[in-house]
Simulated assay, not measured.
Amino acid sequence: MPAPSPLQLTAAFAPIDEAMAAELIGRTHGLAVRSIARLATERDDTFRVRTDRGTVVAKFAHPLDTAATIEGQLMVLAALEREHPGLPVPRIVLARDGARSVAVDDDAGDARLLRVLTHLEGETLGAAPRPLSALRALGALHARLAAAIAAIGDAEPALHGAATPWNLLHLEHYGPHVDGIAQPELRDEAARVIDRVGRSVLPRAAALPAPLAHNDLHGDNVLVQPEPFAVTGVLDFGDMTRTPRVADLAVAASYARGRVSATSDPWAAARAYVAGYEAEQPLTDEEHALLPELVLLRLAQRGILNSAIAAANPAAAAYASRNLSAIARDLRELGASIPSTIGASE
Score class of each variant (00 low, 15 high):
residue 302 R to E: 02
residue 327 I to C: 15
residue 329 R to N: 13
residue 293 E to R: 13
residue 324 L to Y: 12
residue 316 A to D: 03
residue 300 A to R: 14
residue 295 V to P: 01
residue 273 Y to N: 05
residue 310 A to Y: 01
residue 308 A to H: 08
residue 320 A to E: 01
residue 324 L to M: 10
residue 303 G to L: 08
residue 305 L to W: 06
residue 315 A to W: 02
residue 293 E to K: 13
residue 291 L to A: 08
residue 302 R to S: 07
residue 285 D to Q: 13
residue 327 I to R: 11
residue 278 E to N: 04
residue 307 S to R: 12
residue 315 A to I: 08
residue 329 R to Q: 14
residue 283 L to D: 12
residue 273 Y to G: 05
residue 272 A to N: 07
residue 281 Q to P: 04
residue 307 S to A: 15
residue 314 P to L: 07
residue 304 I to C: 14
residue 281 Q to K: 14
residue 308 A to L: 09
residue 288 H to R: 11
residue 289 A to E: 10
residue 277 Y to D: 14
residue 319 Y to Q: 02
residue 272 A to I: 01
residue 308 A to K: 02
residue 277 Y to P: 01
residue 274 V to G: 00
residue 319 Y to R: 06
residue 324 L to F: 08
residue 318 A to P: 03
residue 288 H to N: 10
residue 312 A to L: 05
residue 303 G to S: 08
residue 312 A to R: 05
residue 304 I to V: 15
residue 281 Q to W: 01
residue 322 R to W: 10
residue 318 A to F: 02
residue 325 S to Y: 14
residue 324 L to I: 08
residue 281 Q to E: 06
residue 300 A to C: 14
residue 276 G to M: 06
residue 308 A to T: 06
residue 273 Y to D: 11
residue 314 P to C: 07
residue 310 A to N: 03
residue 303 G to K: 08
residue 287 E to D: 11
residue 321 S to E: 02
residue 288 H to A: 05
residue 294 L to Y: 01
residue 280 E to P: 06
residue 272 A to T: 03
residue 286 E to R: 01
residue 278 E to P: 01
residue 312 A to I: 05
residue 296 L to F: 07
residue 307 S to T: 14
residue 275 A to V: 10
residue 319 Y to E: 00
residue 274 V to L: 03
residue 273 Y to V: 03
residue 276 G to H: 07
residue 306 N to K: 09
residue 310 A to E: 00
residue 316 A to H: 13
residue 318 A to E: 04
residue 270 A to V: 02
residue 320 A to Q: 04
residue 293 E to L: 05
residue 283 L to G: 10
residue 293 E to Q: 12
